[in-house]
Amino acid sequence: MDYSVVDPDDLEYVADRPCDLRRLSEAAGMDRVAINRFDADPGEQRPLAYHYHETQEEAFVVCSGTLHVETPDGEFGVAAGSMFTAPPEAPHRAYNPADADEPASVVAIGAPPVDGDAVPDETDE
């Protein structure tokens, strides 16, 4: 069996992103799901602007702080200990607002793990 323990703080952050991004599934050798940790200070968004995924389901598990997610149905405030999900083709933008009191730490899970699946969506910005 190939078990693994991954400490996100031991991983290099992904450069050129608007918040601290660490790729957990890659470090664990997982290839059927994408798992990443994001730490966003007040005023920072997750790595992608308003977008949707063509085939990927996405879930954000909030570890600390409050994640805000903008959607065509309104804005969701997702508190620590809660999870937000977006099905394929559902536009969303996750961020930590500038007036937030603290950083937001989030574990993002996407399946299947695909590259080039995110499509910018400007219809409801």
Rank of each mutant, 00 (worst) to 15 (best):
D10K: 00
V69H: 06
G116R: 02
G77I: 02
P72I: 13
N36H: 08
V107F: 00
D73S: 14
E102D: 09
E125D: 14
T55S: 15
D117H: 04
E54T: 13
C19F: 09
Y52F: 15
P112S: 04
A15Y: 07
E102W: 05
R23K: 12
A100G: 06
L48A: 15
E122M: 11
A15F: 09
R46E: 12
N96W: 00
E12M: 10
V107A: 03
V107N: 01
P103G: 10
P91L: 03
G81F: 06
D39E: 14
V69I: 09
V6F: 05
A80F: 03
E26V: 07
A28T: 09
E102H: 06
D16M: 10
P112A: 06
P47I: 08
G110A: 12
L24H: 07
V114Q: 14
D115I: 07
V78T: 04
M83Q: 13
V5H: 09
E125I: 14
C19L: 12
C63A: 15
D9F: 07
D10V: 01
D117F: 02
D101K: 05
A79R: 10
E102I: 03
E89C: 14
E70Y: 03
A100F: 01
Y95C: 04
D121R: 07
E44V: 01
A108R: 03
P120H: 05
P8G: 01
S25H: 11
C19M: 08
F84K: 00
I35K: 00
P72R: 04
D7M: 03
Y50D: 12
T55W: 08
E75F: 04
F60S: 05
